[in-house]
């Protein structure tokens, strides 16, 4: 790997100056600079939301959010990882709760503190209209809250920045659960797949996977097919 100086950028990882190849993601750049991820890294594909990161560009006041595995490094990035956003896991039994107008307030009364300041939306690396879905939840609009929050990965950046101390991603999750259970209902595919599972269609395959050794599993994983349906 030979790179000339132009292919490198200077970034600041938690204040420490680093020269890293310009074509790397934040995550890979940090690893290049010697950081090891114990937390704050998961799927590395932009789906799990584990690698929430905040950064500022030199010369700009803006605090921006990104997923470290998705965002490419840029010259002058000042980076810090937010490996976890502290929030209580609210438990509810989906079969028992109701999709009422006040359901959100019952489980997350703090949404009434929302200032509509839109900081959450600004922080979201997924470009979700977070404030709009929190507001939809406040007025009991489950469908809209579910729709707007659909792309949420639960990275937690919105929750870290909210001045009203709301945890938006928990609210979006409840909205989507209520919507799929009580408004949309399960799709045909889900129902037919459940039927197949019950009938034991996949029992043999699962058994063979359970008995497979590590080598075989790695091989299978790497050659897996993803269907786009």
């Amino acid at each position: 790997m030979s790179k000339n100086n132009n292919d490198f950028v200077t970034i600041y990882v938690m204040g420490k100056k680093q020269k890293v190849p310009a074509d790397l993601t934040i995550m890979k750049a940090m690893e290049y600079a010697g950081h090891q991820f114990i937390r704050g890294s998961g799927c590395r594909g932009g789906f799990c939301g584990a690698c929430a990161t905040v950064y500022r560009m030199r010369g700009s006041y803006k605090l921006q959010g990104a997923l470290a595995c998705q965002k490419q490094v840029e010259e002058g990035m000042i980076i810090a990882q937010i490996p976890f956003s502290p929030s209580e896991k609210i438990t509810y039994k989906l079969n028992e709760i109701k999709a009422n107008a006040n359901t959100f307030l019952e489980y997350f009364p703090e949404i009434a503190r929302c200032l509509s300041c839109n900081t959450c939306t600004k922080a979201c690396p997924q470009d979700i209209m977070v404030m709009d879905y929190v507001q939809a939840a406040l007025r009991g609009d489950i469908k809209l809250a579910a729709k707007l929050s659909f792309d949420c990965l639960g990275c937690g950046l919105c929750a870290m920045r909210c001045p009203a101390e709301i945890v938006p991603y928990n609210i979006g999750q409840l909205a989507r659960r209520l919507e799929s259970k009580y408004i949309e209902g399960p799709t045909e595919q889900v129902l037919s797949r459940c039927e197949e599972i019950k009938e034991g269609k996949y029992d043999k395959e699962i058994e063979s996977l359970k008995n497979a050794d590590k080598e075989t599993l790695i091989k299978l994983y790497n050659s897996r097919e993803m269907k786009n349906e």
């Binding site: 006040n102 307030l105 019952e106 009364p109 703090e110 009434a112 503190r113 406040l138 007025r139």
Partner: peptide
């Protein structure tokens, strides 16, 4: 402290009451 409210109260209270209360008192 809104955590003091019971689920029954939260189900009954209108948005307008909770929002204004928290704006004024928290």
């Amino acid at each position: 402290n809104i955590d003091m409210l019971t689920p029954e109260e939260l189900r009954e209270l209108p948005q307008i009451a909770i929002v204004s209360n928290l704006r004024k008192l928290t």
